[in-house]
């Protein structure tokens, strides 16, 4: 807006829309491509003659049904089961992150205490630690707990808060006027009362963002399940997709793209439904830090 031309000409607007359409198309192209390939028969998807578009809507429907049916009923890679596994981990993990971050962010936003600033900076610094660095020791810790080969390593840590979610919520709490707290206090509310009656109801959009971001993180996580899960029946979708891919030799790209679509669809749907909160939430993290 700030760089808007003072009097946009006709050609100016034409160029603008052309650029917008081009960027949007290029950005969305991989997704469309994936969808298109997943609706084609193997011979078309794998041959030079293969076009972007399926031969006809009717063929797309029947080939699509065949491809998705084949993926969902695969004897080796049990996608419905992996879908469920991923959901179980995601739900447990998201609930944990929301509950713990709501509490911890309160401690950082509304209780003033010596050392708060210091702790907050340390917490922000932990976002810099790459997972591969702690991967090996975490493996040992979880092994000594007997957690390797279970879902526990993938969701229990979430119940102790994630730095990014805490940071985001704290930023949001800060925007809620303190006078509301004081009023509640006069009504006899303690910290817990203020949190549950004032802050949580007012920060629902932020909670939604925290939940969605964490859901996507869990849904997309590859290295964690790769290292901590051992049994094929526990695989998540990300691992299932890799298992499916590893059948080199006769890589069935149309089926692979159908499998990718199955993995991508839930996140994409969630994003579309919540895109406004989502984009706002992300921008909060960057500008008001």
């Amino acid at each position: 807006m700030s760089l808007a031309m003072t009097s946009p000409t006709r050609t100016g607007r034409g160029v603008l829309y052309l650029a917008l359409a081009l960027c949007a198309l290029v950005a969305i192209f991989p997704v469309l491509y994936m969808g298109m390939i997943s609706l084609q028969p193997a011979e078309q998807a794998m041959s030079d003659a293969g076009m972007l578009l399926p031969a006809s809507p009717a063929s797309a429907a029947s080939d699509g049904a065949a491809n998705y049916g084949s993926v969902l009923t695969d004897g080796t890679v049990n996608f419905p089961l992996y879908f469920r596994n991923t959901l179980v981990i995601a739900l447990l993990s998201v609930t944990g992150v929301v509950v713990s971050s709501v509490i911890v962010a309160y401690g950082f936003a509304r209780v003033s205490w010596r050392g708060r600033q210091c702790c907050f900076i340390v917490m922000l610094a932990t976002m810099m630690i790459p997972f591969p660095v702690v991967m090996v020791p975490l493996f040992v810790i979880f092994r000594s707990l007997g957690w390797i080969g279970t879902f526990l390593p993938l969701w229990v840590p979430a119940w102790f808060g994630s730095a990014f979610s805490i940071f985001l919520l704290r930023q949001f709490y800060m925007t809620i006027p303190r006078e509301l707290d004081d009023a509640a206090r006069l009504d006899g509310c303690g910290h817990m009362g203020i949190l549950l009656r004032i802050l949580v109801p007012l920060s629902l959009p932020a909670l939604l963002v925290v939940a969605l971001l964490h859901f996507m993180f869990v849904w997309n996580d590859f290295l964690g399940p790769l290292v901590f899960l051992t049994h094929r029946d526990q695989y998540t979708l990300a691992l299932g997709l890799e298992l499916y891919m590893s059948r080199l030799g006769t890589t069935p790209w149309n089926l692979l793209m159908a499998a990718s679509t199955i993995m991508v669809a839930p996140v994409l749907l969630l994003f579309l439904l919540a895109q406004r909160s989502f984009i706002e939430g992300i921008s909060t993290s960057g500008t008001k830090g």
Binding site: R143, T230, L243
Partner: peptide, 20 residues
């Protein structure tokens, strides 16, 4: 009978993790 991908890595991890 269970098919696994990258079986050598998975095997090593499962033995080390105590759940082979």
């Amino acid at each position: 009978y269970l098919t696994m991908s990258s079986i050598d890595e998975k095997a090593m991890l499962s033995i080390a993790g105590g759940a082979p």
